[in-house]
Simulated assay, not measured.
Amino acid sequence: LKEGYMEGASMTKHDGKYYLQYAAPGTQFNVYADAAYVGETPLGPFKYMKNNPYSFKPGGFTNGAGHGITMKQTNGQYWHFATMALASNSHWERRLAMFPTYFDEEGLMYTNTSYGDYPLFAPDHPTKAGQHTGWMLLSYKGKATVSSSQKQISKSTSTDGEYDITEMPLEKNAEGEIISKVLTDESPKSFWVAEANNDKQWVEIEMLQPGNIYAFQLNFHDEEAGIYTRTEGLRHRFTVEVSEDGKNWKTVVDRSGSFEDAPNAYLPLNQPVKGKYIRYNNVEVPGNNLALSEIRVFGKGFGQKPAKVKGFTVDRQEDRRDASFKWKPVKGAQGYNIRWGIAPDKLYQSWLIYDKNEHFMRNLDRDTKYYFAIEAFNENGISARTEVIEVK
Rank of each mutant, 00 (worst) to 15 (best):
N282C: 04
F298H: 01
A291L: 00
E294P: 13
G301V: 09
V273Q: 00
K250M: 13
V252W: 14
G246H: 13
D222F: 15
F259Y: 10
Q304P: 14
R230F: 09
D261F: 05
P286R: 02
R279I: 06
K276A: 10
G299F: 01
N219K: 14
G275M: 06
P272K: 05
V285Q: 03
S256Q: 00
L267V: 10
G301P: 06
V240C: 13
L269K: 04
G303R: 08
N288D: 13
F238Q: 10
D245L: 08
E232R: 01
V252A: 14
E232C: 01
W249Q: 09
N282K: 02
K300G: 13
G303S: 09
D254E: 05
G257L: 14
Y277F: 10
V240L: 12
E294Q: 07
L292A: 04
E284W: 03
E224H: 15
Y228T: 15
E223M: 08
V240P: 06
H236L: 04
G233S: 02
V253M: 09
N248S: 07
A262L: 01
E224P: 15
D222T: 15
D254L: 02
G287W: 10
K274F: 02
S243C: 01
N281G: 08
P272V: 00
R235N: 04
D254N: 13
L234T: 08
V253N: 14
G257M: 11
N270D: 07
V285F: 09
R237W: 00
G287A: 03
E260A: 02
D254C: 05
K247Q: 12
L292T: 14
V240E: 08
R230A: 11
G233H: 09
N288T: 12
T251A: 13
L234S: 01
V242R: 06
G275F: 00
E241C: 11
V253H: 14
L269R: 03
G233R: 05
G301D: 05
K247P: 04
F298A: 03
P286I: 00
R279H: 05
F238I: 04
N264V: 00
